[in-house]
């Protein structure tokens, strides 16, 4: 049943994500062409340089705006689909499917993770594409980055592993935090949207307070500049543990409300 649910959810959310990713990919190709044109004209001294530079600058501005919009849109799409199918009109169909609330929530989370992973992959590919032909510059910058990390006592492998783990975990915590907020909002009778927004803000504040408390505690233990790695390494471990707790709690709350407290008025 999970496979069938995933097929349904990925198809439903795909109508938002696929055009968004295609537009991004096309924009990257256009951006790369403009970038190479600007660089080649810079060396040849073409009289079209100023015009192409202007076009490239305007394009780059819109491209950056689009990237920011995508970051927001990913969340908007995930929330919209969850709200529409779990608590709004289409929820009548969703909750009449012969599957448990547990599977319904799991499928929504996995669909959100799939799209975030795919978007992440496309972004990584686009970065590689932009650097194509200019790897010397990129590799120099990369070594400088490794050296600066090792200078403060950090292991590059440890850093990469933690960044990867936290990226994977955030693909779960981001949608689940929205889902839990919508589920809690569902308990607020006639003020469900307001309840969901309030719940999200409440959850956000609690997580921020916990994070700040951690930084204060660990901050007092740092007395020398060489101990900076303690803060960074500690933060990684802390955020991993916090993310795992968040995933467990948000998932449990969401599926509990939809299995025991469902009220589609």
């Amino acid at each position: 049943m999970l496979t069938k649910l995933l097929k349904k959810d990925i198809t439903a959310t795909g109508r938002f994500f696929v055009p968004m990713i295609i537009i991004y990919a096309v924009a990257c190709v256009v951006g790369k062409i403009l970038m190479e044109l600007v660089l080649s004209m810079l060396h040849t001294g073409s009289n079209m340089y100023d015009i192409i530079l202007l076009v490239a600058t305007v394009f780059a501005t819109f491209f950056i705006i689009y990237i920011v919009a995508c970051y927001i849109l990913i969340r908007v799409f995930i929330v919209y689909d969850f709200y529409k199918t779990m608590v709004s009109d289409q929820a009548y169909l969703t909750h009449m499917l012969p599957v448990s609330a547990n599977l319904l929530v799991l499928s929504k989370v996995l669909a959100a993770v799939v799209w975030q992973a795919l978007t992440g992959f496309v972004v990584a590919a686009s970065i590689a594409m932009f650097f194509a032909g200019h790897y010397d510059t990129a590799i120099t910058g990369f070594y400088e980055f490794i050296n600066s990390m090792e200078a403060i006592g950090m292991s590059f492998d440890f850093y990469c592993l933690n960044v990867f783990i936290n990226l994977v975990l955030s693909a779960f915590t981001t949608p689940l935090m929205f889902f839990a907020a919508i589920a809690i909002g569902h308990l607020f009778g006639k003020h469900r949207i307001l309840g969901a927004i309030g719940s999200y803000v409440g959850i956000y504040v609690i997580i921020e307070v916990i994070s700040i408390l951690f930084l204060i505690v660990i901050g007092f233990r740092i007395t020398k500049p060489e101990q900076t790695s303690l803060l960074v390494n500690g933060s990684f471990v802390f955020s991993t543990i916090l993310s795992l707790i968040m995933i467990g709690v948000f998932y449990w709350v969401t599926q509990y409300i939809f299995s025991r407290k469902l009220n589609l008025e």
Partner: peptide, 21 residues
């Protein structure tokens, strides 16, 4: 009420619950 009861019930709601797209 649960997954198995939902297989036994065919429900026609008083509003459209199908995805328009």
């Amino acid at each position: 009420a649960g997954p198995s009861s939902k297989l036994k019930i065919a429900y026609l709601p008083d509003k459209s619950c199908l995805s328009d797209w």
